[in-house]
Design a protein around this nucleic acid. Structure first.
Lengths: 170, 170
DNA sequence: TGTTAATTGACAGTATACTCACGATCTAGG
DNA sequence: CCTAGATCGTGAGTATACTGTCAATTAACA
């Protein structure tokens, strides 16, 4: 008996699949970000980390990972690189010897000030091909979907938790 | 003179930025894929490669990378892993000693047959939190945006080119 | 209080995802 | 025919993005 044939799969089915489109869009977004920011030697993740540290001075690595929905293991090397570039500094927490608190340096604040308008241009470029109404619709749907799927990811966003604990600790 | 203060940035601005949402959605999509497919030891990229090789038997690595919009350097290790699992085989092209042609093995065809419905469930789960009309709208907008931004990515999709060249060569 | 449980940061391991560069090979132009 | 340029696969190097595990430390509880 011959083995059952594969169902008739076309690449077009792949090109219309959500997973493929999300991967492709992420690829394109990173590409545009790096192109706009090539003068700055900052990756999208490093940028997000800088913003979060600026917004929450004295945050620790674990809470930072929750605030930007970023894997804690990977974050270690991201922090190392930001520290090597002298954009952030780590200070041991006096009340908990396990924790190292993160702060922007002057260099970090300076590069943030310069790069923010550039990043905003990059963000705009990602949606530029769409009509303004469609941009709004897409962003609205994505915000919804990311929020409703938050628990599905391995590193759920925990913005509020992180803030609460920070307030409790400091 | 004091240095200019940073503009008032909030994490909410980051959470609403296209780049952040695309990264987050990709993260969630991979998570759901891996969860549904954990019995199969196949990553999303490996799955896409298998589908493309099934659709274009005898494709070479460079054209495969164009067909799935996947970086050529990374593809080398993906192919190695698929070969190690005995899902694909590589045969030297008789008319061009540089090229190695890719084919599904019986194992590869078998796992594809099993995994396709599982992947479809994963794809459905990614959009599940949205209302059906919103799912359609989101996919429509994403297909548009990915297509219009194709050239912005470092590895543009070249589905037709790849097919043409394949036809010319074989 | 004393032992268990949880948390923190670090490390090893795997898999994308990109850069640039290199040798082998093929193709085109002269 | 023969050299210049393009192309193929590969490798090194960097940066996410996840899985584990581990020791040190802190917190919780019997």
């Amino acid at each position: 008996m011959p083995s059952k044939p594969l169902p008739p799969i076309t690449m077009d089915a792949v090109y219309a699949a959500p997973g493929y489109l999300f991967r492709r869009m992420q690829q394109i977004a990173v590409s545009i970000f790096m192109e706009e920011c090539k003068a700055f030697d900052l990756t999208p993740v490093q940028y997000a980390a800088l913003i979060a540290i600026h917004t929450h001075p004295g945050i620790d690595a674990t809470r930072l990972s929750a605030v930007i929905a970023f894997d804690r293991s990977t974050l270690g090397s991201v922090i190392e690189r930001l520290q090597a570039k002298d954009y952030i500094e780590r200070k041991p927490a006096p009340e908990d010897k396990r924790i190292k608190l993160l702060y922007l340096t002057k260099s970090g604040a300076a590069i943030l000030r310069e790069i923010i308008p550039v990043v905003e241009r990059a963000q705009a470029r990602m949606l530029e091909p769409l009509k303004p109404a469609d941009r709004k619709a897409l962003m609205g749907l994505l915000v919804q979907l990311v929020d409703l799927n938050n628990e599905a990811s391995r590193v759920p966003l925990r913005a509020e938790d992180a803030l609460e604990r920070l307030g409790k600790a400091g």
